[in-house]
Each structure stands twice: as structure tokens, then as C-alpha cells.
Design a protein around this nucleic acid. Sequence first.
DNA 1: GTCTGTCCGTGGTCTGACCACTAGCAGGAC
DNA 2: GTCCTGCTAGTGGTCAGACCACGGACAGAC
Lengths: 253, 253
Amino acid sequence: MAKAILNVVRPEEADTQSGAARVFTAFRDWLLSGELKAGDRLLAERELANVLGVSRPVLREALRSLAMLGLLDIQHGRGAYVRAADASVLGQALTLCLAPEPNILDDVLQARIAIECQAIRLACERVSERDLQALAGMLDTLVDSLDDPKTGGRADYAFHLAIVKASGSSALSKMYEAISPLLMRSHVERRRDTFREPAITSHLVDAHRAVFLSLVQRDPDAAEARLREHFKIGDELRRNNLITNYQNEASRT
Amino acid sequence: MAKAILNVVRPEEADTQSGAARVFTAFRDWLLSGELKAGDRLLAERELANVLGVSRPVLREALRSLAMLGLLDIQHGRGAYVRAADASVLGQALTLCLAPEPNILDDVLQARIAIECQAIRLACERVSERDLQALAGMLDTLVDSLDDPKTGGRADYAFHLAIVKASGSSALSKMYEAISPLLMRSHVERRRDTFREPAITSHLVDAHRAVFLSLVQRDPDAAEARLREHFKIGDELRRNNLITNYQNEASRT
DNA sequence: GTCTGTCCGTGGTCTGACCACTAGCAGGAC
DNA sequence: GTCCTGCTAGTGGTCAGACCACGGACAGAC
């Protein structure tokens, strides 16, 4: 009886798409248009199926798909709630897209540089006093945690993320968060062996300070240049360190 | 009987996740690990359900979810095939993530600048003769199609995409393709009213030529600078044009 | 007032059946 | 011999109804 509802919603696609896909598309568009907001509670499955004019299995297939995407939070015994789409969805999609590619880790690093360099330019225009104070605090944390690879890594990431957020661009922020799981994979691998090297730790502090100062001075060109330098030198130091380690290994055997 | 299979696959999650989610995760990981490759044909639903030890509805919920994500191609009467994850998934995820944000269009433009500026730096190192010839061809197309907003827009996009691809970084390429649908939305809006302005069209040609030349000379700093200039001037021209249009409108009424 | 058990509404799962589509094959018409 | 037609087996698509498992609210016992 109520089958008409979905046909009304998308008359042009009603013929080509089958049940579950139709329901899924409808929900996606309701989310996109803001008709459904985060926190909203959906009707019970049985009722919703009736209203939409489909059977419960079909409805469930659509709801599950949305849940897998992270758009819905379905709780056993309680109901289904609309969830704000966060970057984890993006991250998973990115991981899936990039999975078959070779050298993803280096490649993701390029994406990181891209996002951060643009973000810091914007941040130079838009950063607030509050942001700067927060960044200064992170810089302190970073210096304090130099000898702990785990805390240090987190502080490092937090500092860079804060810069991206200070850009005020949610697109850049979301994309940065999306690549962060992949970034971490390469990050921890690299930091594990290098955190004790004085050359690296001292560079770490200097570089972050320099970037921060450029941000305080709101000088986009300098900020980007210093950030690029930071990435470049960091990369070289790690590479040299790997060579040294390798040579030590070789001479020992 | 065969229920053990999935428990073996993910013993740690078997208790916390329920049927469909377990199957979904298993498939996702098979895809990530390469155990399932693009083009592979899945078993029939009834059979697969038996093998995995779940009922058909549960299996279907998982398969549908994968299909909605674009990872599976389910064809009525033929079967289910593994599909290579393309950027469209990413694009959809990004659109969903950014939907509630204000100023997405301007924001996405920032992401575009970020990706292209880094891409062209890489491209300066990695671009091949073949790529350069292709780019030269695109430049000609672009000049020839200045008077047609539709073809012109496509040529413009093709040129920029080609630069990103020339970076050799699939992460950058995929992300660029992911934002392109959103990019298009702002692009066509802007190009619609501006393609007839001589100041804009002449800038368009000069800027693209300058970027291309820097690429030929493999000068990353110059290439990025010219690209940034292109974006900046383009933005200003469009803005001025909007003001002029607005004033014309105003004086007419 | 607090604890506890029951009940109701919710999602989770299953079974078995039927429909719709595709492709391949066999049989007939030419 | 070739082409067309219709059947058939296998596949996904949908459905109805039932039962289980979980969560919360309410009423009763202490």
C-alpha cells in the first residue's frame, strides 16, 4: 500500500534500482539533504518496512549497509540512530581503494605533505590566539616526551593535526584524519628505531619550533618552506639512520 | 556445521560482532589481503551461506553492504563478482562526510590546491616524455574549446587531472578523483558566467601554458608558484566578474 | 528507598517458499 | 545447414512468519 512512497522520492530511479538499493539511496539522500540529522532515531524495523512498503529483510539489507558505512548506529534492543559521518568511513574507503597499490605508505606520505602544506598556509591567515596557545602546549608535550616513542609519536601527530585543524578547512581536516591510520602504520615503523638518535630528536624539536614560529608570524611562505624542510630532513635522517643500522648489523655478523 | 570457519578467521572479534558484521569484516579483509581479487566470482548465495555457516538473509546483508560500497558487483541471475574499488567510493564517502559542513565548495577547492601543488612537485621529478606530449595535446584542446563552456570545462579538468596522474602517486590521484564530483559542482557554477570574459580566457591559456612550461623544465618551485598564481588570479577574476555582473544587474533594475 | 523480577519493544536470526532474470541448450521452421 | 523459438536449470530478489536475545521500564517485594 505504501509502496508509492519510495517511488515518489526517486521516480527516475525507481525502475532501474531494486528494493534494497532504492531504500539505501533514499536514506543516503535524506542524510545528504539534512532531512535526517545525527542523533535522530529511526522507526522500528517492522514499522519502517511497512511505511516504506518493503519487507523487513529488504529494509534490513539497506540499514545494514548504512551501518557498515558508519552512517547508522544500530543497537540491539534499543533501535537505530543516525550517526554523524566521521572520518573513519573515509579512512576505510581510502584503505580499500589503495590496498592493491604498491608503495602505499610512501604514497600516503605525499598526500600528507600535500594537505599539511596547504593547511599551514590557510592556518597562517586563520589561526586564532587560542589555537596558538594550544599548539605551544603541544610543543612542550612533544619536547617532554622525546624519550618515549609511543607518547612522542602521539604528541607529534597531535601537533601536526592541530595545525591542519587550525586551517579551518574541514575538507583538509577530514582528509588528513582519513589518511592518518595509514600514516600511523609507516610512522610507528620509522619511529621505533630512530627515537634514540640525538640528531633526529634535536631536529624534531627545532623543526617543530620553526614551523610554529612561522605560524605565529603568520608567514605562509616561510611556514610551508619550513614544513617541507622538516619532512625532507626527517626523511633523510631516517634514511641515514637505516643505513647506519644496516651497516652495524652487517659488521656484527 | 561449517560455522567454525568464520570464527577461525577472526577469533578475537567473533564474540563481539554478530553475523552480518562478521561476514562483512571477513570479506573486507579477504579483499584487503588480496585473497579475493577483482573479477573473482563468488559462490552462489545459498552455497556461500552454507559454507560460512550463516543463513542466506544474514549473508545477503553482508553482500549488499559490500555492493553498496562498490566492492561487489551483484547481477541478478548471473552471480556476484568482486569489483576493483575505484575512487567513486571515496568520492561518495567524502560527500557524505562533508555534507553537513558549511562552505564545502570553497573548502574542497583548498583540498584541490593542496593535492595539485604537491602533485606537480612530484610530477617535475617523475613526468615522462609521453606524459608531456599528452599534456601538450590537452593544452591545444583547451585553447580550441575556449568558447564552449562544457567542452572547455572538461578540457580544463582533464589537464589538471593529467598533472596529478603524472605525479605517479596513486594516493594523490585517488583523492583528486574523489573530490572531483564536488569540484565540478563549484566549477560549472563558476564557469557558466565567466567563459566569455576575455580577461579570464586569456588568463586561462597563459596560466596553463606557464604551468606546463615549468613542468617541462622540471622546476618544482616555479611550477607550484605558477599553479598557485593560476588559482589565485582565477579566483580574483571570477570574483571581479561576479561583482561586475551584480552591478550590471543592479543598474538595469 | 532500594533492589529485583517480569514484561514489552527492539533488533538478530532462521526457515522455506516463490518470483524474476540470465544463459545455455534442444527442438523446430526455413 | 542456419536461424529462431521455447524450455529449463541456476542465480539473485523478495516475502511472510516465527522465534531468540537484548535493553529498559515498571511494579512489586524487601
